[in-house]
Design a protein around this nucleic acid. Structure first.
Lengths: 214, 214
DNA sequence: TCATCCAGTTAACAACTGTTCTCTGGAATT
DNA sequence: AATTCCAGAGAACAGTTGTTAACTGGATGA
């Protein structure tokens, strides 16, 4: 049952979302540890003190951004990895390319703050990535190729895939940053180059997987 | 021929090194984009304006730190990758573990600023990592297993290894951050766990390499 | 020995930061 | 209709920031 929010709660959530959006934009050219509270409220068009009605600190806001960026991505990754056969890798690479194109600021934020200067945010990202790895692991376990594998090795392989996905995502991101308004073609071929390399790297990992038990 | 520096130049280099050291310490719990110029000079024990005698900006200092952190590492990586046979992976993992233990702040800085908020620093790191990949590639090319491989595929493989090394380094770093002064044993076994996983991941990649041309 | 150089100092600038306390006006509850 | 609630405003706080200009005093080179 969806309970309709009162005018008050609705307006509050709207403002909260405005905070998240403004922060994400500001974080395109700096890191969270240098993001000022007043800077954000200025961008939203609201008094500095209003910030405290929604977040304890900018670190708190950062944790909320992690959930927004990764929270809704789990089902998509799950169904992509569930694809059987050779098409799995192709679909995974396409999923990454499309996601980066659709939400570049989110991807940049995650790549940046994964090893960033704010501990709670690092932990939030680490936990989310561990969830991804667990999910990939359970999908991989369903493969016929997973026969004879123990849980530890499957999880190791899952982490390898997840890390590889993140690296690929940040490479796609770089092609966007080199975007040239005059002629978008060169960076489009750049993107195809990244896709080709990422595909081959994952294929090589899959090959290693096939011969792991030899 | 090594020309002995004058008292003046020597003192200047000493102060410059003090800047780098102080910055590296401060950067353990924040990112470069939030590092203030006055903050650094305060830590060095010198007037704020002295900063400009050595660096144009904190971004400039960051680029210098990249060189310090990665510049001297090339020969070590090269000789490690040049190790033939199965021992190569063992040595590589040990090299990483030792380097992280000896220079944790440097490793943290690189991991943090690789995708950080300061463009010139990102570029400096990207260039250094590309150099590592090129060097790994030329070493791999000497292997008998490299027969029949083209340059593109070798470079792809080299990048895979370099990225994997960085991931492993940052995992070792995390075990240091969870260090408990009361009982150092648990995080020592944690380190062995990381080493075991990293070794198996690289072994799996090597397996994929062996069957690449099938 | 004397003039030049230059790493580091001192003082001052306007602009910015996070956080506190008090207040307001409309929504929510009774 | 009267009361409570609470998201956001406003003002003020002490402290911080990067950058400028003009200086000092010891090393340097003629």
């Amino acid at each position: 049952m969806s309970h309709t929010l009162g005018i008050r709660q609705a307006q509050k959530q709207k403002t909260r979302q405005a905070f998240l959006d403004a922060a994400l934009t500001l974080l395109e050219e700096q890191s969270l540890s240098s993001l000022g509270l007043r800077e954000v409220t200025r961008a939203v068009g609201v008094a500095p003190t209003a910030f405290y009605r929604h977040f304890r600190s900018t670190a708190d806001l950062g944790v909320a951004l992690v959930d927004e960026a990764l929270g809704s991505l789990h089902p998509m990754v799950r169904t992509t990895v569930a694809t059987p056969g050779a098409e799995r890798i192709t679909r995974a690479v396409r999923l990454i390319a499309d996601h980066v194109a659709a939400h570049p600021a989110h991807v940049r934020f995650i790549a940046r703050e994964r090893h960033g200067g704010v501990q709670p945010v690092r932990k939030a990202i680490r936990d989310q990535l561990a969830r991804f790895a667990e999910e990939v692991k359970t999908e991989l376990a369903k493969d016929p190729e997973a026969e004879g594998w123990n849980d530890d090795d499957l999880l190791m392989l899952a982490h390898l895939y997840v890390d590889q996905m993140l690296i690929t995502a940040s490479l796609f991101l770089e092609t966007l940053e080199n975007e040239n308004p005059e002629s978008p073609e060169p960076s489009e071929t750049e993107r195809e180059r990244v896709a080709r390399i990422a595909t081959r790297q994952m294929r090589l990992i899959s090959l290693g997987r096939q011969h792991w038990l030899d």
